[in-house]
Design a protein around this nucleic acid. Structure first.
Lengths: 257, 257
DNA sequence: TTCTACAAAAATATCTACATTTTTTATTAT
DNA sequence: ATAATAAAAAATGTAGATATTTTTGTAGAA
């Protein structure tokens, strides 16, 4: 099956004019710049899978990947194995790689896990967050509430999504645990394809947007009042709320080629 | 620096006489057998890192890895990237791979995250576990309490560790969330090098062993009584308890070569 | 001397092109 | 239809080429 929709195209190693004026250490410079082929492939492919350029279950033919991304088989395999670890791709030895399937079962599990984890982390943030954390949360909440003066619907979607993510990120950043944040990030990546389905429904409905605004306001209120019980409960519900919408939109798994 | 201690040696593809008598589907057979080179490398290297065959910070020279595990650079890179995802290895582009450092900071973070997560999962298990779950927990608890009639100290260590792990696994299996279990497993892998330090101290001290027995008994009691609050609290404390011991044993990070 | 800057050499990491193995598809005979 | 076989496609692995980093050595300046 041919991939659908717009897809990433490899950039001929964006010269990335590393305006290295001064005050940048050797290490910082190097780490920021030239990634290896495997890393490039990983990023492009991950984006394309999340954005739906490939369908769940699609076979990821090495010949196609090589020519499309202009990357050799070795680095491409490296990228693919990483995506397997991320659960966005599945592999069977000697039979190659496929885009991970989506299912109602997985939807339920991911969101259940996310809700519990995000609630846990939020509770810790309430206990551990300092004034800077409060300020960040408030600031991001404000920016999110002001996503109106935007141009196209497409832009609206992207801006709202970006700020919504930042808002939640600001909240959880207070938890003080890098490991919990890593796990949360991983789960969020796994949820991303499902989230995309919900996003369109929500951002383009004044009703839904207003509802979210309300939830966020209550959340901020509980957070700043350091009401742990209320904050965790609100967060739990907030994360679970998209499930019914997504369930309706979930593509029926057609036995992919 | 030369790797220390006993280390895995590649097996010349264990012919693995696949006694495929009957009733085994094609798929089941294939998936169980021949893993590719990258997978083999991943398993061996992961074991060696966890078992301390390499020191934290050790450089993982491609030339050494290739010759020692008798695996080419391509598959080896694939394995290494996966270990980077597991946080057991770090990578810097064009400068290769190193065994991840260990630190008191990370110890604290991992155990904090583990304690919260295991408590969360235990709470869910109490709510969601069925009779089979109860039976499994009870059974594993019993087997763990009977780790006496063993031979060598080395065997004692291994048997106790294995059964202790199974006991905890039986508990969390009741939570009903594959994703939460995955995250827990990942965190457990990351904790493993720290746990090993604690294990020797515990298994070879009658005092410590008795204490653990006590904790486990209380835990089982709370679980079977479906006392969620008590079970989660006990579990939280149980997971955190090794920290002081490990902290003392933690090797001082010597700037590795 | 002692330090610094530079250049060359060596070591290392990474990638590519091709060889090999395995699976899948097509074809033919039963 | 079914099973066996051959051909094609695909996945995986290897060896060697290329690019990058690190080390070493040297000459000049302080």
């Amino acid at each position: 099956m041919e991939p659908t929709g717009k897809m990433n195209t490899p950039v001929t190693n964006s010269t990335h004019s590393n305006g290295n004026a001064a005050g940048v250490t050797e290490k910082e410079m190097v780490e920021g710049s030239k990634a290896n082929q495997a890393t490039i492939a990983y990023r492009l492919l991950k984006q394309d899978i999340i954005n739906g350029a490939y369908q769940p279950g699609d076979k990821l033919l090495m010949s196609h990947l090589k020519s499309h991304y202009e990357i050799g088989a070795g680095p491409m395999r490296e990228a693919l194995s990483q995506l397997v670890a991320d659960r966005l791709v599945t592999a069977i030895s000697q039979r190659g790689f496929r885009v991970a399937e989506m299912s109602e079962e997985e939807l339920t599990d991911i969101y259940d896990a996310r809700a519990h984890l995000e609630a846990l982390i939020t509770g810790l943030a309430v206990e551990r967050g300092d004034e800077d954390w409060e300020a960040e949360v408030l600031g991001e909440a404000h920016k999110l509430s002001r996503v109106n003066e935007v141009n196209t619907p497409e832009e609206m979607l992207q801006v709202w999504d970006r700020r919504h993510k930042s808002f939640h990120q600001a909240i959880v950043n207070g938890c003080g645990s890098p490991k919990l944040l890593e796990m949360r990030a991983s789960l969020l990546d796994q949820a991303e394809r499902y989230r995309q389905l919900w996003l369109k429904q929500t951002v383009f409905s004044q009703n839904a947007l207003e509802e979210k605004r309300q939830e966020h306001a209550e959340l901020v209120d509980a957070l700043l009042n350091r009401d742990k019980a209320k904050a965790t409960e609100l967060m739990y519900g907030h994360i679970l709320s998209p499930i019914p919408i997504i369930r309706k939109l979930l593509p029926q798994s057609i036995p992919a080629n």
